[in-house]
Structures are given as C-alpha cells and as structure tokens.
C-alpha cells in the first residue's frame, strides 16, 4: 500500500471521488435553486436523482443498436424512418425529453449531418450527451455554411457528386443519422455491426468503416 507523503488540504473526503469543495459560485447556485424548488414542493429530490441515472444510462451504444437493427431488419428500418421515436421505443429506448426523433438515412446520393446552430439540441435519449465540439461556436457556425470543409476536419471526404444535407435541430426535433452500412460486413451479426457504429457517424461527421482500427479523426 502506498501512503501519500503529502496532503496539502485538511478537509474530509466523504465521497468516493473528489468533488468540488467548496462549491464554486455556479455549483452553489444550482444547489440553491434545486433546494428552494424542492422546499416549494415543485420538484422532488427523487426526480433529480432519477434524472441523473437516466443521463448516466444514455450513450451512443443505444444509437448503435438502433442502427444495426435497421441495417439487418428492413421492416424495422421502414418504421424507423417513418417515426424515429416510436421505433426506438420498440427497442426500449424512451424519448425522455419529449422531443421528436427524426432519422435520416445516408445513401449513395445523400450524406446527412446534424447541427444545432442556436444552441446544443441533440438526440440525447439515443446518443447521451453531446461532445464539446458539437456545442462550441466553430461547429455550429460553420456546419451550415461549409459542411465539406467541416467534414474534412473530421477526416471525412464525401465525393462531390454526393449531396450533403445539414439538419439544424431544435427543442422539438432531434435528428439521428442512419449511416451507410460499410461494404464487406455482410457476414457480421447485428451485435458485431453495432460495434462498428460510432457516435460521430450517427451525428454524420464521419462514416462507418468496416473495421474500427483505422479512423482518421483529427487529421485535418
């Protein structure tokens, strides 16, 4: 066992991991609002705790499951493209935020990508929380103006003859991209296919490759 030879603060460590101690200004503000609303009976501690559990339970693994099912089950794919929310709910993925999920399919003629120019609307129920770059000014400003240049920064080159459709999300409509199934994956199971599907491909800034090993992300 290693004994730390130096401990330069004297507060107790009640939690398992270190939290902000003392709370900063904004963390205190959040706690103040939450406690006041709980005291007023408008929300409950349990709802807040439960929502943290829901946030923790959502990740791109769910979206990948949806994509792999659509690739292997044409009837499911039809339902998914007709009503994204309802099809996801078939797989037990609830749209907890009440927003409508719209799924756009990439084809040989069209490549789709998602942005939220105004803020950070994102299909959280199926992808979890958005990456920082999705919320930052650079992506939001440029995606609708020069999508091919933006895609290139993600290491993605879409042939000129393929149109690019950029979908600007809002509070009521969230988009998920159904990527092209890569060639050479005919022998894979649904579960193996799901393992190839990345978050960024479901946002539409990358494409799905037949193996996860070579990705060019970041090579602008």
């Amino acid at each position: 066992m290693t004994v730390p030879d130096h401990h330069d603060h004297d507060h107790a460590h009640p939690g398992v991991t270190k939290d902000e101690e003392p709370y900063g200004y904004y963390a205190t503000l959040e706690l103040a609002v939450r406690e006041l609303l709980i005291e007023a009976g408008l929300i409950t501690t349990d709802e807040h705790r439960r929502q943290i559990e829901i946030l923790d339970s959502r990740s791109p693994v769910l979206g990948a499951k949806v994509v792999a099912r659509a690739w292997t089950d044409p009837e499911f794919k039809k339902r998914l493209l007709a009503d994204g929310s309802a099809a996801c709910e078939e797989l037990g993925i609830t749209m907890y935020d009440g927003a409508h999920l719209i799924v756009h399919e990439n084809t040989d003629q069209v490549h789709n990508m998602v942005v939220c120019t105004l803020c950070s609307c994102y299909p959280r129920p199926v992808l979890g929380l958005p990456p920082d770059w999705y919320k930052n000014k650079q992506y939001r400003a440029r995606a609708v103006k020069e999508p091919r240049a933006v895609l290139k920064e993600f290491g993605t080159t879409i042939p000129d003859e393929v149109s690019i459709h950029v979908h600007d999300s809002n509070a009521n409509m969230r988009y998920l991209i159904l990527p092209l199934r890569p060639a050479g994956t005919e022998h894979l199971t649904e579960e193996e296919l799901a393992g190839l599907v990345t978050r960024d491909a479901m946002i539409g800034v990358t494409v799905v490759k037949s193996s996860l090993v070579q990705t060019n992300r970041g090579q602008a």
């Binding site: 959040e30 609002v33 939450r34 929380l129 990456p131 770059w133 400003a141 440029r142 995606a143 993600f154």
Partner: peptide, 25 residues
C-alpha cells in the same frame, strides 16, 4: 449559423459533477 469561425477543436472534457447535477435539474 453561417458565420465564419475557426477550426473545430475536438478536445473533449468530462462533465464536472455539478454540471451533471445542473443538466439533470
């Protein structure tokens, strides 16, 4: 949307505990 901006910074950071509490709230 449509304004000029710099290259995209792809670095990601983990959510701070208070940020998750704020999101849930």
């Amino acid at each position: 949307g449509g304004k000029d901006a710099d290259a995209i910074n792809m670095e990601e950071h983990s959510m701070l505990p208070w940020e998750k509490r704020c999101h849930a709230l």
